[in-house]
């Protein structure tokens, strides 16, 4: 029994592929709308290695990374600053919660006016959305630093700055990584949506949209899977970094 347990994680994938194949084989759905898994993965392979899909993939990666990086550069220091004083945080809490709850897509027209049709709009809207998520998490991480640990540092004679730097900052790291992971996921969502509609000529969003317009279903599914793989990969990347840097989390 034990030997089969290593295969558990692939069971879901196998079931999905089987149901998909059977559906195509039995012609439950119009084959034009649902291509077979094989033709989909062939389209994905060709697109990624020699077609335009690979370039679109890289474009979307770039935009997502840029916007997350910009968001982090702004939100990390600001979150630490806000979190280190509960009074300051309480005074801007409403603003943060309000804009965090505002769908970032509603900001597109505004950013279009500010930055025009191009990468700058896509990246800045995604950065805006991600920054609020990161900010919120960092501030909470800093604020919820264990009181005992702060007292322990204080009784040793640590200054406020030192407590902030040596204790609160490290205490907030697990929550900060939650924020970074949520932030990068949100940034990807916003970037893909922006690529679909804001006069784009490249990116995974544009690829999905164009394939749909051309009724090229294998290409469309291939682009969707590529976007999924990207999201999953980014999440995995941040989890790996987190495990390396925050070895004490949850212990």
């Amino acid at each position: 029994m034990k030997r089969f347990e290593v295969f558990l994680p692939v069971v879901g994938v196998a079931v999905l592929l089987t149901v998909w194949s059977l559906t195509v084989w039995a012609r439950v759905v119009d084959p034009v709308l649902l291509p077979s898994p094989i033709s989909t993965f062939r389209a994905m392979w060709i697109g990624m290695t020699s077609g335009k899909l690979g370039l679109d993939f890289i474009k979307t990666v770039e935009r997502t990374i840029y916007s997350t990086a910009i968001a982090a550069v702004i939100a990390l220091p600001l979150g630490i600053l806000l979190g280190s004083s509960e009074k300051v945080y309480r005074s801007v809490e409403f603003l943060i919660d309000f804009f965090r709850s505002t769908p970032a897509s509603a900001m597109f027209p505004l950013f279009l006016v500010l930055f025009g049709v191009g990468d700058r709009t896509k990246i800045s809207v995604a950065a805006f959305g991600a920054a609020l998520v990161i900010l919120f998490n960092v501030a909470y991480g800093v604020m919820n630093a264990r009181k005992t640990r702060i007292l322990a540092a204080k009784v040793m004679g640590a200054s406020r700055l030192r407590v902030l730097w040596d204790v609160m900052l490290l205490e907030s790291l697990p929550q900060t990584f939650v924020g970074l992971r949520n932030g990068v996921s949100l940034a990807l969502v916003i970037v893909v949506v922006a690529e679909m509609f804001i006069g784009s000529t490249d990116g995974l969003g544009q690829r999905v949209f164009e394939a749909q317009q051309l009724f090229d279903m294998p290409d469309m599914y291939a682009a969707i899977f590529a976007a999924g793989a990207l999201g999953y990969g980014l999440n995995l990347l941040f989890l790996t970094i987190e495990r390396r840097f925050v070895h004490w989390a949850g212990k």
Binding site: T148, V167, W248
Partner: peptide, 16 residues
């Protein structure tokens, strides 16, 4: 200079 030992060592040590 004070020395202070807390009841909850788990929360008083620096796990990093």
């Amino acid at each position: 200079k004070f020395g202070y030992v807390f009841q909850s060592y788990r929360e008083a040590m620096f796990p990093w």
